[in-house]
Design a protein around this nucleic acid. Structure first.
Lengths: 216, 216
DNA sequence: GCCCTAACGTTCGTATACGATTTCATATCC
DNA sequence: GGATATGAAATCGTATACGAACGTTAGGGC
């Protein structure tokens, strides 16, 4: 059995990711401890871990709250993610075989099929599966960890994802195919890195364009 | 006054960075608590934070040990650092003014002077100061945080730094000047990013060449 | 009517205590 | 003699308890 700390960590993280605890929600240690059936010490540890990942903000003698979806935070996260995802893709590319590309292609076809009856949660999941196949052979686990942290952060503010820019989803699927072509043809690492980075930052640009339009 | 957790965190981190606790050193909670004059709960929190930063490894029901200087870990950290430093430099470049460049140049001159009577600790500190000036205006705090985490990781295994490849230090100083020239001349972000990334990965390459020579 | 102050309740911070798990040494059996 | 089981010691994991800090509200003074 996992430790109580792990339980608390997973439980709170899940509730943040699925939206049960919205941004700004106050996380009272004693209350969480009661709800989860454990004492406050493991809950404290869980909260501090979540703080280290940027999912909650913690103020001494005040308490923890679920981290907000500040647009600038979103920008920072997406920009950082574009950098580490791009590098991780480029590093992984030489190790990706034809079988992997076939699997990625299959996932991408599912994403294309998902464009009708658009389900943002399912689409996001498939998107992670797609890039997961690419990163499977990533030779640098540290870099991969940074990618996963970025994904987790995005999940906690997932109201800011594809849901907001539906047109971006179909572009994304097209770019996936192009990326697979590049990898399959053994393109230079520089070219692959640039493509992967732009793939992510284009989503950010679409978001910025949309919010810019809203403000005008 | 800072909380006991903070005290414990800073104290243990400092002792890891300055080498008091060498890699592999076992960190016993009760012992640390006694030495620091606090109880075990704050020490636990401190250890978990250090674990999140990768400075210590923690095994359930077994305990914590100072993270090792596994050569592959060094490789991962340096490679990741080359990526995030490169990107951070490129993002910061447009915001760096002539006064900043002058300051960076002054720090680099200090580094050049430091090449005689080589003091690796001082040199590493000046190196961080140099890049610190460059990152001062970095528009993405997340990215900057990743850079700082990388530096901290390197500090914990600083026996793997310039001390091992003395010839690399003078190259580094020369590259610093070239980098400042690039930034001052308003070069493209791509060019600056590539130069900054190579600047870091060249140190890694020098290390790999040296250890490779040792093994043959 | 408004502001300042003080007391209250809520929540966090830390210490202590006890139960759970692992490890190592020793003794016993094959 | 070697391998395995058993015990004790060490260490971690968690619960509970109490003290400290913060925010809020009620009361009094201006």
């Amino acid at each position: 059995m996992a430790s109580k700390s792990e339980q608390a960590y997973s439980a709170v993280k899940a509730r943040i990711s699925d939206g049960t605890y919205s941004p700004g929600h106050r996380l009272v240690l004693a209350r969480l401890a009661h709800d989860l059936g454990v004492s406050v010490v493991p809950v404290r540890e869980a909260i501090r871990r979540l703080e280290a990942e940027g999912l909650v903000t913690f103020q001494r003698n005040i308490g923890a709250t679920v981290a907000g979806i500040d647009p600038t935070e979103y920008l920072y996260t997406m920009q950082t993610l574009s950098i580490v995802e791009g590098a991780a893709t480029a590093l992984s590319a030489p190790l990706i075989g034809p079988a992997d590309i076939e699997r990625a292609r299959a996932v991408n076809d599912e994403m294309r099929a998902c464009l009708q009856d658009f389900d943002p949660v399912r689409f996001t999941r498939l998107n992670q599966d797609f890039h997961g196949v690419l990163f499977e052979h990533c030779p640098n686990p540290h870099l991969l960890d940074l990618v996963h942290r970025g994904w987790t952060r995005l999940a906690s503010m997932r109201s800011s994802t594809f849901r907001f820019v539906p047109g971006r989803a179909s572009e994304s699927v097209t770019e996936h195919d192009a990326l697979l072509d590049l990898i399959g043809s053994g393109a230079d690492a520089d070219v692959i890195e640039r493509a992967a980075r732009l793939h992510r930052s284009a989503t950010l640009d679409a978001y910025l364009a949309r919010t810019g339009a809203d403000n005008s």
